[in-house]
Nucleic acid binder design. Structure first.
Length: 452
RNA sequence: GCGACCGUAGCUCAGUUGGUUAGAGCACCUGGUUGUGGUCCAGGGGGUCGGGGGUUCGAAUCCCCUCGGUCGCCCCA
Protein backbone atom coordinates (compact mmCIF):
# COMPACT_ATOMS: atom_id res chain seq x y z
CA UNK A 1 0.00 0.00 0.00
CA UNK A 2 1.14 3.52 -0.73
CA UNK A 3 2.07 5.41 2.37
CA UNK A 4 2.14 9.10 3.14
CA UNK A 5 5.71 10.39 2.95
CA UNK A 6 7.80 10.21 6.09
CA UNK A 7 7.01 12.91 8.61
CA UNK A 8 3.74 14.00 7.00
CA UNK A 9 0.18 13.62 8.24
CA UNK A 10 -3.18 12.85 6.70
CA UNK A 11 -5.94 14.96 8.14
CA UNK A 12 -9.06 12.84 8.46
CA UNK A 13 -12.16 14.67 9.71
CA UNK A 14 -11.27 14.25 13.39
CA UNK A 15 -7.78 15.67 12.87
CA UNK A 16 -8.91 18.30 10.40
CA UNK A 17 -11.48 19.77 12.75
CA UNK A 18 -8.79 20.13 15.41
CA UNK A 19 -6.49 21.81 12.91
CA UNK A 20 -9.22 24.26 11.92
CA UNK A 21 -10.08 24.86 15.56
CA UNK A 22 -6.45 25.63 16.35
CA UNK A 23 -6.08 27.90 13.33
CA UNK A 24 -9.28 29.69 14.30
CA UNK A 25 -8.00 30.25 17.83
CA UNK A 26 -4.63 31.48 16.57
CA UNK A 27 -6.40 33.84 14.18
CA UNK A 28 -8.86 35.20 16.71
CA UNK A 29 -6.17 35.87 19.31
CA UNK A 30 -3.95 37.56 16.70
CA UNK A 31 -6.74 39.79 15.49
CA UNK A 32 -7.87 40.92 18.91
CA UNK A 33 -4.26 41.87 19.67
CA UNK A 34 -4.32 44.05 16.58
CA UNK A 35 -2.35 41.95 14.08
CA UNK A 36 -3.18 41.61 10.38
CA UNK A 37 -2.91 38.28 8.58
CA UNK A 38 -0.43 37.78 5.74
CA UNK A 39 0.75 34.83 3.69
CA UNK A 40 3.66 34.22 1.36
CA UNK A 41 4.74 31.58 -1.14
CA UNK A 42 5.20 27.99 -0.03
CA UNK A 43 8.62 27.95 -1.71
CA UNK A 44 11.28 30.59 -2.07
CA UNK A 45 14.63 31.02 -3.78
CA UNK A 46 17.12 28.87 -1.94
CA UNK A 47 19.38 31.91 -1.51
CA UNK A 48 16.80 33.53 0.76
CA UNK A 49 17.65 30.92 3.39
CA UNK A 50 21.36 30.79 2.56
CA UNK A 51 21.79 34.50 3.23
CA UNK A 52 20.41 34.14 6.69
CA UNK A 53 21.64 30.81 7.89
CA UNK A 54 24.57 29.78 5.75
CA UNK A 55 25.19 26.74 3.58
CA UNK A 56 24.88 24.06 6.22
CA UNK A 57 21.15 24.80 6.44
CA UNK A 58 20.66 23.47 2.93
CA UNK A 59 20.80 19.86 4.08
CA UNK A 60 17.80 20.52 6.32
CA UNK A 61 15.74 21.88 3.46
CA UNK A 62 13.59 20.32 0.79
CA UNK A 63 15.20 21.98 -2.19
CA UNK A 64 14.78 21.52 -5.91
CA UNK A 65 15.53 23.12 -9.24
CA UNK A 66 12.92 24.44 -11.63
CA UNK A 67 13.14 24.01 -15.37
CA UNK A 68 14.94 27.30 -15.70
CA UNK A 69 17.70 26.09 -13.41
CA UNK A 70 16.61 28.22 -10.42
CA UNK A 71 17.43 26.77 -7.01
CA UNK A 72 14.29 26.73 -4.87
CA UNK A 73 13.35 25.43 -1.43
CA UNK A 74 10.14 24.72 0.45
CA UNK A 75 9.99 27.21 3.30
CA UNK A 76 11.45 25.86 6.55
CA UNK A 77 10.35 28.99 8.42
CA UNK A 78 8.46 32.14 7.70
CA UNK A 79 10.72 34.91 8.98
CA UNK A 80 12.83 35.27 5.79
CA UNK A 81 9.65 35.60 3.74
CA UNK A 82 8.37 38.14 6.22
CA UNK A 83 11.61 40.11 6.02
CA UNK A 84 11.43 40.04 2.23
CA UNK A 85 7.85 41.31 2.33
CA UNK A 86 8.86 44.07 4.72
CA UNK A 87 11.68 45.14 2.41
CA UNK A 88 9.29 45.19 -0.55
CA UNK A 89 7.01 47.71 1.14
CA UNK A 90 9.44 49.24 3.61
CA UNK A 91 8.80 52.82 2.57
CA UNK A 92 5.05 52.69 3.06
CA UNK A 93 4.58 50.48 6.10
CA UNK A 94 3.15 52.02 9.25
CA UNK A 95 5.19 51.88 12.42
CA UNK A 96 4.77 49.57 14.03
CA UNK A 97 3.58 47.04 11.49
CA UNK A 98 1.90 44.08 13.17
CA UNK A 99 1.52 40.93 11.09
CA UNK A 100 0.69 37.31 11.71
CA UNK A 101 0.62 34.22 9.50
CA UNK A 102 -0.38 30.56 9.82
CA UNK A 103 1.69 28.84 7.14
CA UNK A 104 2.73 25.26 6.54
CA UNK A 105 6.47 24.68 6.87
CA UNK A 106 8.79 21.95 5.62
CA UNK A 107 12.00 20.64 7.09
CA UNK A 108 13.97 17.65 5.82
CA UNK A 109 14.96 16.36 9.22
CA UNK A 110 14.35 13.08 10.97
CA UNK A 111 10.86 13.05 12.49
CA UNK A 112 10.61 12.47 16.23
CA UNK A 113 8.39 13.50 19.09
CA UNK A 114 7.15 17.01 18.44
CA UNK A 115 8.95 17.28 15.10
CA UNK A 116 7.54 16.47 11.70
CA UNK A 117 8.59 17.28 8.15
CA UNK A 118 5.43 19.23 7.44
CA UNK A 119 3.81 21.30 10.15
CA UNK A 120 1.87 24.45 10.86
CA UNK A 121 3.52 27.31 12.61
CA UNK A 122 1.81 30.43 13.83
CA UNK A 123 4.02 33.47 13.31
CA UNK A 124 3.45 36.79 15.06
CA UNK A 125 5.73 39.72 14.33
CA UNK A 126 5.94 43.36 15.23
CA UNK A 127 8.09 45.42 12.87
CA UNK A 128 9.45 48.92 13.34
CA UNK A 129 9.29 49.20 17.12
CA UNK A 130 12.48 48.73 19.11
CA UNK A 131 10.97 49.25 22.56
CA UNK A 132 10.68 46.62 25.28
CA UNK A 133 6.96 47.36 25.11
CA UNK A 134 6.93 45.67 21.71
CA UNK A 135 8.72 42.65 23.17
CA UNK A 136 6.12 42.37 25.87
CA UNK A 137 3.22 42.93 23.49
CA UNK A 138 4.39 40.01 21.39
CA UNK A 139 4.92 37.89 24.49
CA UNK A 140 1.42 38.81 25.59
CA UNK A 141 -0.06 37.40 22.39
CA UNK A 142 1.66 34.05 22.90
CA UNK A 143 0.61 33.85 26.53
CA UNK A 144 -2.96 34.86 25.74
CA UNK A 145 -3.18 32.08 23.16
CA UNK A 146 -1.99 29.48 25.66
CA UNK A 147 -4.47 30.73 28.23
CA UNK A 148 -7.23 30.64 25.62
CA UNK A 149 -6.57 26.93 25.13
CA UNK A 150 -6.70 26.26 28.85
CA UNK A 151 -3.01 26.28 29.73
CA UNK A 152 -2.09 28.08 32.93
CA UNK A 153 1.03 29.68 34.31
CA UNK A 154 1.50 26.58 36.45
CA UNK A 155 1.59 24.40 33.34
CA UNK A 156 3.96 26.43 31.15
CA UNK A 157 7.15 28.42 31.60
CA UNK A 158 7.99 31.47 29.56
CA UNK A 159 11.77 31.59 29.67
CA UNK A 160 13.28 34.92 28.80
CA UNK A 161 16.82 35.91 28.10
CA UNK A 162 18.69 38.70 26.37
CA UNK A 163 21.54 38.25 23.94
CA UNK A 164 23.34 41.39 25.05
CA UNK A 165 23.06 40.51 28.71
CA UNK A 166 24.39 37.03 28.13
CA UNK A 167 27.26 38.43 26.03
CA UNK A 168 28.24 40.85 28.76
CA UNK A 169 28.19 38.14 31.41
CA UNK A 170 30.30 35.84 29.26
CA UNK A 171 32.81 38.57 28.44
CA UNK A 172 33.18 39.38 32.10
CA UNK A 173 33.89 35.71 32.79
CA UNK A 174 36.81 36.05 30.44
CA UNK A 175 35.48 34.47 27.27
CA UNK A 176 37.15 36.11 24.30
CA UNK A 177 34.81 38.06 22.07
CA UNK A 178 35.56 35.84 19.09
CA UNK A 179 34.45 32.79 21.05
CA UNK A 180 31.08 34.21 22.09
CA UNK A 181 29.16 32.32 19.43
CA UNK A 182 30.71 29.05 20.54
CA UNK A 183 29.81 29.87 24.13
CA UNK A 184 26.21 30.47 23.06
CA UNK A 185 26.18 27.09 21.37
CA UNK A 186 27.52 25.49 24.52
CA UNK A 187 24.85 27.16 26.64
CA UNK A 188 22.20 25.91 24.28
CA UNK A 189 23.38 22.33 24.57
CA UNK A 190 24.23 22.24 28.24
CA UNK A 191 21.31 20.01 29.20
CA UNK A 192 22.31 17.36 26.69
CA UNK A 193 25.86 17.06 27.94
CA UNK A 194 27.40 15.28 30.88
CA UNK A 195 29.00 17.61 33.45
CA UNK A 196 32.39 16.29 32.38
CA UNK A 197 31.83 17.05 28.71
CA UNK A 198 30.48 20.45 29.63
CA UNK A 199 33.60 21.20 31.65
CA UNK A 200 35.82 20.00 28.87
CA UNK A 201 34.05 22.14 26.29
CA UNK A 202 34.05 25.17 28.56
CA UNK A 203 37.74 24.69 29.18
CA UNK A 204 38.31 24.63 25.43
CA UNK A 205 36.79 28.11 25.29
CA UNK A 206 39.54 29.34 27.56
CA UNK A 207 37.63 29.21 30.83
CA UNK A 208 39.33 28.40 34.09
CA UNK A 209 37.82 25.94 36.53
CA UNK A 210 36.28 28.49 38.86
CA UNK A 211 34.78 30.47 36.00
CA UNK A 212 33.39 27.29 34.48
CA UNK A 213 31.41 26.86 37.66
CA UNK A 214 30.09 30.45 37.35
CA UNK A 215 29.28 29.91 33.68
CA UNK A 216 27.28 26.83 34.59
CA UNK A 217 25.59 28.65 37.45
CA UNK A 218 24.47 31.53 35.24
CA UNK A 219 23.27 29.14 32.59
CA UNK A 220 21.09 27.24 35.01
CA UNK A 221 19.71 30.08 37.06
CA UNK A 222 15.97 30.35 36.63
CA UNK A 223 14.68 33.48 38.27
CA UNK A 224 11.00 34.27 38.61
CA UNK A 225 10.09 37.48 36.84
CA UNK A 226 7.90 38.39 39.78
CA UNK A 227 10.99 38.98 41.88
CA UNK A 228 12.05 42.57 42.51
CA UNK A 229 14.83 43.93 40.33
CA UNK A 230 17.14 43.91 43.31
CA UNK A 231 16.48 40.23 43.85
CA UNK A 232 17.16 39.48 40.18
CA UNK A 233 20.51 41.25 40.36
CA UNK A 234 21.42 39.46 43.57
CA UNK A 235 20.47 36.02 42.21
CA UNK A 236 22.63 36.36 39.12
CA UNK A 237 25.56 37.76 41.07
CA UNK A 238 26.76 39.90 38.21
CA UNK A 239 27.38 43.67 38.20
CA UNK A 240 24.12 45.49 37.70
CA UNK A 241 25.53 47.40 34.72
CA UNK A 242 25.79 44.10 32.83
CA UNK A 243 22.04 43.66 33.23
CA UNK A 244 21.04 47.03 31.82
CA UNK A 245 19.30 45.44 28.83
CA UNK A 246 17.22 43.16 30.98
CA UNK A 247 15.90 45.79 33.34
CA UNK A 248 13.45 47.50 30.92
CA UNK A 249 12.00 44.09 30.09
CA UNK A 250 11.60 43.38 33.78
CA UNK A 251 9.77 46.68 34.28
CA UNK A 252 7.31 46.14 31.46
CA UNK A 253 6.55 42.54 32.42
CA UNK A 254 5.69 43.79 35.87
CA UNK A 255 3.52 46.66 34.59
CA UNK A 256 1.61 44.53 32.08
CA UNK A 257 0.97 41.72 34.54
CA UNK A 258 2.76 39.15 32.41
CA UNK A 259 5.46 38.57 35.02
CA UNK A 260 3.73 35.65 36.78
CA UNK A 261 4.06 33.60 33.57
CA UNK A 262 7.71 34.45 33.07
CA UNK A 263 11.14 33.64 34.38
CA UNK A 264 14.66 34.64 33.36
CA UNK A 265 16.94 31.96 32.07
CA UNK A 266 20.17 33.21 30.56
CA UNK A 267 20.80 29.73 29.21
CA UNK A 268 18.16 30.38 26.55
CA UNK A 269 19.90 31.42 23.38
CA UNK A 270 17.57 30.12 20.66
CA UNK A 271 20.03 28.77 18.15
CA UNK A 272 22.53 31.14 16.69
CA UNK A 273 20.78 32.61 13.73
CA UNK A 274 19.63 36.20 13.78
CA UNK A 275 18.42 37.23 17.20
CA UNK A 276 19.89 40.43 18.57
CA UNK A 277 18.18 41.25 21.85
CA UNK A 278 15.43 39.66 23.86
CA UNK A 279 15.02 35.97 23.20
CA UNK A 280 12.45 33.66 24.72
CA UNK A 281 10.95 30.24 24.53
CA UNK A 282 7.91 28.65 26.12
CA UNK A 283 8.10 25.17 27.50
CA UNK A 284 5.94 22.73 29.34
CA UNK A 285 6.53 23.14 33.08
CA UNK A 286 7.17 19.41 33.30
CA UNK A 287 9.97 19.81 30.79
CA UNK A 288 8.75 16.76 28.91
CA UNK A 289 8.09 18.34 25.53
CA UNK A 290 10.21 20.49 23.29
CA UNK A 291 9.74 24.24 23.28
CA UNK A 292 6.24 25.04 22.03
CA UNK A 293 7.14 28.57 21.10
CA UNK A 294 10.35 30.43 20.39
CA UNK A 295 11.10 33.96 19.41
CA UNK A 296 12.82 37.20 20.11
CA UNK A 297 14.18 40.36 18.64
CA UNK A 298 15.93 40.48 15.27
CA UNK A 299 16.83 44.11 14.68
CA UNK A 300 19.23 43.57 11.79
CA UNK A 301 17.46 41.03 9.63
CA UNK A 302 15.50 43.44 7.44
CA UNK A 303 18.71 45.34 6.76
CA UNK A 304 20.47 42.09 5.86
CA UNK A 305 17.81 41.57 3.22
CA UNK A 306 18.46 44.98 1.70
CA UNK A 307 15.93 47.09 3.55
CA UNK A 308 16.37 50.12 5.78
CA UNK A 309 17.44 49.60 9.41
CA UNK A 310 14.29 48.16 10.92
CA UNK A 311 13.87 46.75 14.42
CA UNK A 312 11.55 43.77 14.72
CA UNK A 313 10.54 41.03 17.09
CA UNK A 314 8.26 38.04 16.91
CA UNK A 315 7.79 34.36 17.56
CA UNK A 316 6.74 31.09 16.02
CA UNK A 317 4.50 28.50 17.61
CA UNK A 318 4.17 25.07 16.04
CA UNK A 319 1.06 22.93 16.02
CA UNK A 320 2.85 19.66 16.77
CA UNK A 321 4.28 20.40 20.21
CA UNK A 322 1.26 22.52 21.13
CA UNK A 323 -1.09 19.62 20.40
CA UNK A 324 1.08 17.21 22.39
CA UNK A 325 1.19 19.59 25.32
CA UNK A 326 -2.58 20.04 25.33
CA UNK A 327 -2.99 16.29 25.10
CA UNK A 328 -0.62 15.78 28.05
CA UNK A 329 -2.87 17.98 30.16
CA UNK A 330 -6.13 16.63 28.71
CA UNK A 331 -6.92 20.04 27.35
CA UNK A 332 -7.25 18.95 23.74
CA UNK A 333 -10.95 18.81 22.92
CA UNK A 334 -12.59 15.69 21.52
CA UNK A 335 -13.41 15.95 17.85
CA UNK A 336 -17.12 15.48 18.57
CA UNK A 337 -17.11 18.57 20.75
CA UNK A 338 -15.72 20.87 18.09
CA UNK A 339 -17.25 19.25 14.98
CA UNK A 340 -20.06 21.38 13.55
CA UNK A 341 -23.26 19.84 14.91
CA UNK A 342 -26.20 19.60 12.49
CA UNK A 343 -29.22 21.76 13.25
CA UNK A 344 -31.55 19.09 11.91
CA UNK A 345 -31.30 15.40 11.18
CA UNK A 346 -33.92 13.88 8.89
CA UNK A 347 -35.05 10.31 9.29
CA UNK A 348 -37.60 8.40 7.29
CA UNK A 349 -39.79 6.11 9.32
CA UNK A 350 -42.62 5.80 6.84
CA UNK A 351 -43.33 4.41 3.42
CA UNK A 352 -42.72 5.58 -0.11
CA UNK A 353 -44.27 8.99 0.52
CA UNK A 354 -41.73 9.68 3.24
CA UNK A 355 -38.88 8.53 1.00
CA UNK A 356 -40.14 10.75 -1.77
CA UNK A 357 -40.47 13.84 0.40
CA UNK A 358 -37.20 13.56 2.27
CA UNK A 359 -34.76 14.81 -0.40
CA UNK A 360 -36.86 17.87 -1.16
CA UNK A 361 -37.36 18.74 2.49
CA UNK A 362 -33.63 18.28 3.09
CA UNK A 363 -32.80 20.71 0.29
CA UNK A 364 -35.38 23.24 1.51
CA UNK A 365 -33.94 23.18 5.01
CA UNK A 366 -30.41 23.61 3.66
CA UNK A 367 -31.50 26.52 1.49
CA UNK A 368 -33.08 28.11 4.53
CA UNK A 369 -29.58 28.20 6.00
CA UNK A 370 -29.84 25.18 8.26
CA UNK A 371 -27.12 22.59 8.64
CA UNK A 372 -29.25 19.61 7.71
CA UNK A 373 -28.24 15.98 7.41
CA UNK A 374 -30.13 12.74 6.79
CA UNK A 375 -29.76 9.09 7.47
CA UNK A 376 -28.60 6.98 4.56
CA UNK A 377 -29.46 3.72 6.29
CA UNK A 378 -31.97 1.32 4.89
CA UNK A 379 -33.57 0.54 8.23
CA UNK A 380 -36.89 2.07 9.28
CA UNK A 381 -36.18 1.33 12.91
CA UNK A 382 -36.81 4.70 14.53
CA UNK A 383 -34.78 3.83 17.59
CA UNK A 384 -31.68 3.16 15.52
CA UNK A 385 -32.24 6.23 13.39
CA UNK A 386 -32.64 8.45 16.43
CA UNK A 387 -29.45 6.99 17.81
CA UNK A 388 -27.69 7.94 14.63
CA UNK A 389 -29.16 11.46 14.87
CA UNK A 390 -28.02 11.67 18.44
CA UNK A 391 -24.51 10.52 17.54
CA UNK A 392 -24.12 13.42 15.14
CA UNK A 393 -24.97 15.79 18.02
CA UNK A 394 -27.85 17.16 15.94
CA UNK A 395 -30.12 19.55 17.81
CA UNK A 396 -33.37 18.44 16.16
CA UNK A 397 -34.55 15.24 14.56
CA UNK A 398 -37.30 15.41 11.96
CA UNK A 399 -39.24 12.18 11.65
CA UNK A 400 -41.11 11.57 8.38
CA UNK A 401 -43.71 8.95 9.17
CA UNK A 402 -47.39 8.15 9.37
CA UNK A 403 -48.29 11.76 10.16
CA UNK A 404 -47.55 12.60 6.53
CA UNK A 405 -51.09 11.43 5.78
CA UNK A 406 -52.21 14.57 7.58
CA UNK A 407 -49.45 16.61 5.92
CA UNK A 408 -47.42 16.64 9.12
CA UNK A 409 -44.17 15.36 10.46
CA UNK A 410 -42.60 15.24 13.89
CA UNK A 411 -39.86 17.58 15.06
CA UNK A 412 -38.03 16.27 18.07
CA UNK A 413 -35.68 18.37 20.18
CA UNK A 414 -32.82 15.98 20.88
CA UNK A 415 -31.50 18.07 23.73
CA UNK A 416 -34.75 18.72 25.59
CA UNK A 417 -36.40 15.47 24.52
CA UNK A 418 -39.79 16.94 23.65
CA UNK A 419 -41.40 16.57 20.25
CA UNK A 420 -44.24 18.18 18.36
CA UNK A 421 -46.10 17.47 15.10
CA UNK A 422 -45.80 20.26 12.55
CA UNK A 423 -47.04 20.96 9.03
CA UNK A 424 -44.51 20.03 6.36
CA UNK A 425 -44.16 23.62 5.18
CA UNK A 426 -43.47 24.94 8.67
CA UNK A 427 -40.43 22.87 9.62
CA UNK A 428 -37.80 25.45 8.66
CA UNK A 429 -39.63 28.19 10.49
CA UNK A 430 -40.07 26.12 13.62
CA UNK A 431 -36.45 25.03 13.74
CA UNK A 432 -35.09 28.49 12.97
CA UNK A 433 -37.32 29.95 15.66
CA UNK A 434 -36.25 27.41 18.24
CA UNK A 435 -32.63 28.13 17.35
CA UNK A 436 -33.23 31.86 17.70
CA UNK A 437 -32.24 32.41 14.08
CA UNK A 438 -35.64 33.13 12.60
CA UNK A 439 -36.12 36.28 10.56
CA UNK A 440 -39.17 37.37 8.56
CA UNK A 441 -37.17 37.81 5.39
CA UNK A 442 -35.98 34.27 5.50
CA UNK A 443 -39.53 33.05 5.90
CA UNK A 444 -41.04 35.02 3.03
CA UNK A 445 -38.92 33.42 0.37
CA UNK A 446 -37.00 30.53 1.77
CA UNK A 447 -36.00 29.10 -1.58
CA UNK A 448 -35.33 32.25 -3.61
CA UNK A 449 -33.53 34.20 -0.91
CA UNK A 450 -30.33 32.26 -1.22
CA UNK A 451 -29.61 34.26 -4.35
CA UNK A 452 -28.01 31.53 -6.42
C1' G B 1 22.77 11.48 7.59
C1' C B 2 23.86 7.98 12.34
C1' G B 3 22.10 4.60 16.51
C1' A B 4 18.41 1.71 19.47
C1' C B 5 13.56 -0.39 19.78
C1' C B 6 9.01 -1.53 17.19
C1' G B 7 5.47 -3.04 12.80
C1' U B 8 -0.82 -8.78 13.08
C1' A B 9 -8.32 -5.82 10.84
C1' G B 10 -9.93 1.37 10.77
C1' C B 11 -8.35 1.42 16.51
C1' U B 12 -6.36 -1.48 21.02
C1' C B 13 -4.17 -6.03 21.09
C1' A B 14 -3.88 -12.01 21.48
C1' G B 15 -1.46 -15.75 18.50
C1' U B 16 2.31 -22.00 22.48
C1' U B 17 9.36 -24.57 21.43
C1' G B 18 8.10 -22.75 13.60
C1' G B 19 2.63 -26.83 12.45
C1' U B 20 -3.88 -26.98 9.09
C1' U B 21 -8.51 -22.38 6.05
C1' A B 22 -4.95 -16.04 11.55
C1' G B 23 -8.42 -14.49 16.43
C1' A B 24 -10.96 -11.08 20.30
C1' G B 25 -12.95 -6.33 21.89
C1' C B 26 -14.29 -1.59 20.00
C1' A B 27 -15.80 0.71 15.39
C1' C B 28 -18.52 -0.05 10.72
C1' C B 29 -22.77 -2.51 7.91
C1' U B 30 -27.41 -5.69 7.95
C1' G B 31 -31.50 -7.88 10.44
C1' G B 32 -34.56 -8.46 15.03
C1' U B 33 -41.16 -6.66 9.68
C1' U B 34 -44.67 -0.75 10.34
C1' G B 35 -42.51 4.51 15.60
C1' U B 36 -38.70 7.07 19.88
C1' G B 37 -32.02 7.95 21.88
C1' G B 38 -25.04 5.89 24.32
C1' U B 39 -28.74 -0.75 25.84
C1' C B 40 -29.66 -6.13 24.20
C1' C B 41 -29.62 -10.42 20.57
C1' A B 42 -28.16 -12.54 15.82
C1' G B 43 -25.41 -12.08 11.46
C1' G B 44 -21.86 -9.68 8.01
C1' G B 45 -17.82 -7.09 5.44
C1' G B 46 -12.80 -6.06 6.28
C1' G B 47 -6.03 -8.56 7.20
C1' U B 48 -0.61 -9.97 0.54
C1' C B 49 0.55 -10.69 9.35
C1' G B 50 4.39 -3.23 6.48
C1' G B 51 7.06 -4.90 1.68
C1' G B 52 10.86 -8.10 -0.75
C1' G B 53 14.25 -12.10 -0.42
C1' G B 54 16.23 -16.36 2.27
C1' U B 55 16.27 -20.91 5.72
C1' U B 56 12.61 -25.03 6.18
C1' C B 57 8.45 -30.44 4.38
C1' G B 58 6.07 -26.06 6.59
C1' A B 59 7.21 -18.92 8.52
C1' A B 60 2.95 -13.97 11.69
C1' U B 61 7.02 -16.72 14.41
C1' C B 62 14.06 -17.64 12.52
C1' C B 63 17.88 -14.70 9.19
C1' C B 64 19.02 -10.56 5.60
C1' C B 65 17.46 -6.19 2.97
C1' U B 66 13.93 -2.35 2.48
C1' C B 67 9.84 1.01 3.86
C1' G B 68 7.41 3.25 7.87
C1' G B 69 6.77 4.44 13.29
C1' U B 70 8.85 5.65 18.17
C1' C B 71 13.00 7.51 21.08
C1' G B 72 17.79 9.68 20.98
C1' C B 73 22.29 12.08 18.10
C1' C B 74 23.15 16.10 14.36
C1' C B 75 20.03 20.32 13.84
C1' C B 76 16.23 23.11 16.01
C1' A B 77 15.43 28.72 11.94
Amino acid sequence: MLQAPKGTRDFFPDEMIWRRHLEKTWREVSIRHGFDEIEGPTFELLDLYRVKSGDEIVSELFSFEDRGGRQLALRPEFTPTLARMVVARAASLPKPTKWFAIPLHYRAERPQRGRLREFLQWNVDMIGDDSPAADSEVLGVAIDLLAELGLTRELVRVKISHRETVSKCLLRLGIPEDRLLQAFALLDRRDKMSPEDFQKAAGALGLKDDTIARFDEIARAGIAATASWGEVVRSLQVPEQDLEDLQPIHDILDKTGLAPWCEYDLGIVRGLAYYTGTVFEIRDAGGKERAVCGGGRYDRLVETFGGPPTPACGFGMGDVVLSLMLQDHRLKPEAADIMPAPDVFLISAGGDDAEALLPKLLLDLRRAGLHARRSYRATRNVGKLLKEASNTHARFAVILGQELEQGQLVVKDLTAGDQIPVDVGQVAKLVLTRLGRFSERGLDAPTSSCGM
